[in-house]
């Protein structure tokens, strides 16, 4: 589904990605992990064409991604910080994104699910951070995209919404979708992910299942496995 070949990215003097290679074939949830500043968000953004790499190529369903745009019809992206134009209402924003995509969307079920009905006619500037994040979820999940990219999806969500989001991810996964998720919450990784991609110093340090990572590091719990990798590195 996604193939990343020899990806290099430098921001000014800061080399973030140094030859990243990986491939995701099967469906399911892939957690992209790594310490702060390891280039997780950068990888996700290069897949989306928002960050332009110095070197390397990305293929989505065997089509090169760089300098292309229509492949994004098949991707849903949930950014880390949800900020929208203050003067638009939630309804207008959803309509706008639907208008851009020009495909069917099932926003009503999601609006109900996250209890956004009462906020639909409020301006986005008046919403709290958590509510904006819920709008963000609706925008990401309302299309039937085969690939969903979620960057820190749990930020700012209350426990109830968090449970709903996890259930939603589970359901969509069972429908055969692929997820790329970055998060620092290890319980979420253990609960949801089928595969882990671990980034360290701009390269893929590990790719495999949660169990494989635990076996490799000889730890019983994921958090400790990760800590062990980082300690041995330092």
């Amino acid at each position: 589904m996604i193939r990343i070949e020899n990806l290099y990215k430098r921001f000014g003097r800061l080399q973030v990605l140094e030859g990243v290679n990986f491939q995701i074939e099967e469906q399911g949830v892939v957690a992209v992990l790594g310490p702060n500043g390891s280039g997780k968000t950068t990888i996700l953004k290069t897949i989306l064409g928002m960050v332009l790499p110095q070197e390397g190529e990305i293929y989505f369903d065997n089509q090169p991604v760089l300098n292309n745009w229509d492949y994004r019809n098949r991707i849903g992206y949930m950014p880390q910080i949800a900020r929208f134009p203050d003067n638009l209402t939630v309804r207008e924003l959803i309509e706008m994104i639907k208008n851009i995509r020009d495909v069917d969307a099932n926003e009503h079920a999601l609006i109900e699910r996250f209890g956004l009905e009462s906020s639909m006619d409020k301006k986005l500037g008046q919403l709290s951070g958590g509510t904006k994040q819920k709008v963000n979820i609706v925008l990401t999940f309302m299309f039937d995209s085969p690939l969903l990219i979620l960057d820190e999806p749990t930020a700012g969500l209350d426990p109830v919404s968090l449970i709903r989001l996890k259930a939603l991810i589970q359901e969509e996964k069972e429908k055969g979708k692929t997820f790329l998720i970055t998060t620092h919450i290890m319980s979420l990784v253990e609960e949801l992910s089928d595969q882990i991609v671990f980034l360290l110093e701009g390269q893929i340090f590990f790719q495999g299942s949660v169990q494989e990572l635990k076996d490799q590091t000889g730890q019983k719990n994921l958090e400790h496995s990760i800590a062990k990798i980082l300690e041995s590195d330092a």
Partner: peptide, 17 residues
């Protein structure tokens, strides 16, 4: 400047830059 995040949202949609 204030539309920066919104621009990012648009960039992730199927539209040309």
């Amino acid at each position: 400047y204030s539309a920066r995040e919104f621009t990012e949202l648009l960039l992730s949609q199927p539209i040309k830059r």
